[in-house]
Write a protein that binds this DNA or RNA. Structure first.
Lengths: 191, 191
DNA sequence: CTGATTTTAGACCTCAAGTTCAAGAATCCG
DNA sequence: CGGATTCTTGAACTTGAGGTCTAAAATCAG
């Protein structure tokens, strides 16, 4: 009962996510969110409580969709090395695509809110940890498939790949594509 | 002629740098700067023009001192691998030291101001490029000294190390020391 | 239809960020 | 010392961020 919502909360969260991603947390004002979502400020506050709470939902959504995309992409046909290489290239291309070079929302968040925001930091840690698990799982599958050496430490490699990924997304803010592709090749040279 | 400055501009810039580093650009208010530097807001504006200009000077200072420290540290006795390894460990420890996990100012800047601030982006690019040069030079010296293979591409390796470094400083925001040290070992395993 | 309930949207409020200013203080020159 | 010049500072100003509120609108139960 009562008047029904005139918008799909998930759609609004997705639009908010895009805006936070592009403009940063501090750089996004309630007015920006209202414009991006097409929902008036008052309604946003009524539904989500505060900018901060909306951001939390946006960051969660980012983590979920990101890990789904990653899992799906890594599972496509190919060796572990091929798939991981392709994944890094994909991310670089996504980062370079579009006029904004917005990088990774999770990373931007932890850089912007640093140690000052306990909850955001924990959320980002979970997102990163999940990525490491996905890489490790893919490497272990490679070992079962026979395309990765039996004696590599899957988790250690996965952590290294996640670090490379994080570094690449920083570098992608100021370096150009050929350089980034070269870095990927160098990083994945062993294997 | 005229009343003399009551403060050393370089000292003020250094203090401002610390504040921006700890709290981020947007997170630092003129009031914060006044408190951190011990100079009244009005004076800061009189001397530096705007928050943005002060930040530019702070970021430049960061780049200069950073590259000096790096150059000095890499040139100390040891093989290229030993020195670079020690340098990465040093940075990780500096990042973990203190209660704030502030990471790297240059990196934080490019993450926070992203593509939206052309000048800041260029400055950070210069800082990163300088780091790559220093790593490359150290690797080339290693080749002359005989502790690095003659046929490694020094610049490619240097770019890779810079990427690892950037990634580590992201990871250092949410992971703990043993993990980070393991990543360093994995990253520098070849060589 | 009425009333209960929920959502909407824009006006409204408060406060701090970022900057400017006016009045005074310190210095050098002649 | 008087004046020119530059620096200092707290107060004052402007703007927008972040959030609240209220009157109207939409829905459903009875």
């Amino acid at each position: 009962m009562g008047r029904p919502k005139s918008f799909e909360p998930d759609v609004v969260i997705a639009r908010a996510m895009e805006t936070f991603w592009t403009k940063g947390y501090a750089g996004t004002s309630p007015a920006d969110l209202a414009e991006a979502t097409g929902v008036a400020k008052g309604s946003l506050y009524h539904s989500f409580g505060s900018k901060r709470e909306l951001f939390t939902k946006a960051l969660d959504l980012y983590g979920r969709t990101g890990s789904e995309v990653t899992e799906e992409f890594l599972s496509r046909p190919g060796t572990a090395k091929e798939r991981i290489h392709a994944y890094l290239v994909l991310l670089v291309d996504m980062d370079l695509d579009g006029p904004v070079r917005r990088g990774c929302l999770a990373q931007n968040t932890v850089e912007e809110l640093g140690g000052r925001d306990e909850e955001a930091t924990r959320t980002v840690h979970r997102i990163e940890e999940r990525m490491v698990e996905l890489f490790a799982a893919r490497i272990e599958r490679g070992q079962r498939d026979g395309d990765v050496d039996r004696d590599v430490d899957a988790r250690a490699q996965a952590l290294f790949i996640q670090t490379t990924l994080a570094g690449l997304r920083v570098m992608a803010k100021t370096f150009d594509r050929p350089v980034l592709l070269q870095i990927i090749d160098t990083a994945l040279a062993r294997l």
